[in-house]
């Protein structure tokens, strides 16, 4: 069950970036692996600052990683 309306493509992007592990991404953006797990599961909407750091880690604009979905909550 999705808890929030902000979705993301982090899991796919990690694999597109030489199968980057959750821990590697966590180290790059300065959070724990638990937070990356929660983001990928859709259990947590990151702060704007963290979203920008993740976007920078993938060298992509923020809207290529995160999207807003109106019908996510059931």
């Amino acid at each position: 069950m999705r808890n929030n309306l902000v979705g993301n493509h982090i899991r796919r992007l990690r694999f597109d970036h030489d199968e980057m592990t959750q821990q590697q991404l966590a180290d790059k953006v300065g959070v724990t692996r638990q937070t990356i797990v929660a983001l990928e599961k859709g259990n947590y909407s990151p702060s704007l600052e963290l979203a920008f750091r993740i976007a920078r880690a993938f060298s992509l604009p923020i809207e290529s990683i995160f999207y807003y979905e109106e019908n996510a909550k059931k």
């Binding site: 300065g30 959070v31 724990t32 692996r33 638990q34 937070t35 929660a38 947590y44 990151p46 702060s47 963290l50």
Partner: peptide, 9 residues
């Protein structure tokens, strides 16, 4: 173990 607390924590 994680040596710090992040925003989710």
């Amino acid at each position: 173990e994680p040596g710090f607390t992040d925003e989710l924590d």
